[in-house]
């Protein structure tokens, strides 16, 4: 077994503990809201969530460095390393936002379980490695991948807030999120993150096109990944038009946000591994 797998497990374990504390902390709010507890709601739960998320990020960083040194290239090529890299960046960007915007904190009970989709998936994969394709030494790769990470993370945060809006439709869950501002305010926040997501997705597409021009001699060729990413960009643009130009309801808005996120998730983890040729070197 490769050493990086141990670090991966450690990182996921830290995320698991963070998830546990996130639920505890929200349960505490619910109890407080319904008068079931006599304790003062403290911030210590949230601090633990943050601590374990950051611990997970540090452990995954080590995991990636160990692997990098072993196989001599960064986490850009096969599904195993791409999933770890996303777990790392989504965790990091979410943790920083969690720390800076206290309003987001209760969304951890939605966001962290979503991280378990790549989290469990990566555990099912065989650990192997593919050599770096010849065009992956290009510096635009960093810009492209980096912008993409922010795009997905901001979609994830938007989805966390949309998730709270959905959860509050049920009285039982509504109590857990009583401390949060009204749906209208959450909706405002969520769409701000979606606006940021659009900026970063646009940057990602530009950097990707420049890279494609260098790598394959064309900036756009409607390959599977390009087509999917472009549709995603259009969907987000259309959703933003719908949200800011027409008075769509908060719930419709939340549905749109989730759709954009699901589409992005499929673009990232479905398309490149479904279609053999997309974005891979040719022999």
């Amino acid at each position: 077994m490769f050493v990086e797998v141990l670090w991966l497990w450690a990182g996921l374990a830290a995320y698991a503990i963070a998830t546990y504390y996130a639920f505890r902390s929200v349960a505490q709010y619910r109890d407080a809201a319904t008068g079931m507890t006599s304790e003062i709601v403290s911030h210590s739960g949230e601090k633990r969530v943050l601590f374990f998320m950051m611990a997970g990020v540090v452990l995954l960083t080590i995991c990636m460095i160990v692997r990098w040194l072993r196989i001599d290239h960064g986490p850009f090529v096969d599904l195993f390393e791409l999933l770890i890299s996303q777990l790392w960046s989504l965790g990091l960007i979410y943790a920083v936002s969690y720390w800076r915007f206290p309003l987001l904190r209760p969304t951890a009970v939605i966001v962290l379980p979503m991280l378990w989709i790549p989290g469990l998936w990566v555990l099912t994969l065989e650990v192997s490695s593919i050599p770096n394709p010849p065009t992956y030494f290009n510096d635009w790769k960093w810009a492209h991948v980096g912008f993409g990470k922010f795009f997905l993370a901001f979609c994830l945060i938007g989805t966390g807030l949309a998730g709270v809006i959905f959860a509050r439709m049920h009285p039982y869950f509504a109590r857990s999120f009583q401390f949060m501002p009204t749906d209208k305010v959450l909706d405002n926040y969520a769409w701000r993150f979606m606006l940021l997501a659009l900026v970063f997705e646009s940057l990602m597409l530009i950097a990707g096109a420049v890279w494609a021009q260098d790598a394959w001699g064309r900036y756009w060729a409607w390959d599977a990944l390009e087509t999917s990413a472009f549709l995603n960009w259009l969907l987000l643009g259309a959703a933003i038009h719908a949200r800011f130009t027409y008075n769509i309801s908060v719930r419709t808005g939340a549905i749109l946000i989730v759709l954009v996120f699901v589409f992005a998730f499929i673009t990232y983890f479905g398309i490149p591994f479904y279609s053999g040729a997309a974005h891979k070197g040719v022999i």
Binding site: A32, A33, G35, T37, S38, E39, I40, V41, F101, P102, L103, Q178, F179, M180, P181, V185, N188, Y189
Partner: peptide
Amino acid sequence: DQVHYKQKKMRIQSAVPGS
């Protein structure tokens, strides 16, 4: 929004019986 959120949280905290 942030201020509103913090104030509301504090209000609920102090409203908890037995706090």
